[in-house]
């Protein structure tokens, strides 16, 4: 069973819809116990970094996520990926989950609009199990204004938007996608299936 962490962030149903469509057993939960008992964890999220960390800490979920994410497959999606990093700078400096070293800052591309919205091409930086079975012309759907500075050894894939933008990260059992696999057509569904098969 995959636990989808429900901490009040928007749009979590689309992740559940995608997993249901793939026939994968998943449950929305805000209980620490469910997260401990699950085989895998997904941390979705749309919203602001400080607000999300505050919600997770109010729900008493910060410690359990930090402990469990290094024991079994964990996938952060969009804001959920950003929270994996040590620090966020959205409005104010905020402590993240610290599962991967790095910080999350406002994107400042010249002459390109922010948020970065749309289908962008994934460029592989190193091997990652979530990209199994995918070719080198795969597009995924992004919606974000902040991006993570990720150490190269944890950067699985990036996209080009004014500069290299962190798209997919991995360190041990911890995975994160800046894009929305649940909105990225067949490519996204394949990535979710790969995660379920870890």
């Amino acid at each position: 069973m995959i636990a989808i962490v429900d901490y009040g962030a928007g749009n979590i149903f689309s992740v559940k819809n995608a997993l249901d469509y793939l026939g994968l057993s998943a449950e929305l939960t805000s209980k620490a116990e469910d997260i401990r008992n699950a085989d895998k964890i997904i941390l979705p999220g749309v919203g602001a970094f400080p607000w999300a960390m505050n919600k997770l800490s109010e729900s008493g979920l910060v410690d359990v996520i930090k402990e469990e994410a290094v024991k079994k497959p964990f996938l952060g999606i969009c804001l959920g990926m950003q929270l994996i990093f040590s620090k966020g700078y959205e409005f104010e400096e905020t402590e993240g989950l610290g599962l991967i070293d790095g910080s999350v800052r406002l994107m400042t591309p010249d002459d390109l609009s922010i948020p970065h919205i749309g289908w962008n091409k994934l460029v592989k930086n190193r091997e990652c199990a979530l990209l199994n079975g995918l070719g080198d012309d795969e597009y995924v759907y992004f919606v974000h204004s902040y991006a993570a500075d990720c150490p190269d050894d944890a950067l699985a894939a990036y996209c080009e938007y004014g500069r290299k933008v962190t798209a997919l990260v991995n360190k041990g059992t911890v995975y994160g996608a800046q894009f929305h696999p649940e909105k990225s057509g067949k490519t996204g569904l394949k990535i979710l299936r790969n995660f379920a098969e870890l």
């Binding site: 689309s14 819809n17 249901d20 469509y21 759907y141 909105k183 990225s184 057509g185 569904l189």
Partner: peptide, 8 residues
């Protein structure tokens, strides 16, 4: 639609 279409 959201249950079977996975594009925006």
């Amino acid at each position: 639609t959201a249950q079977k279409v996975f594009v925006p």
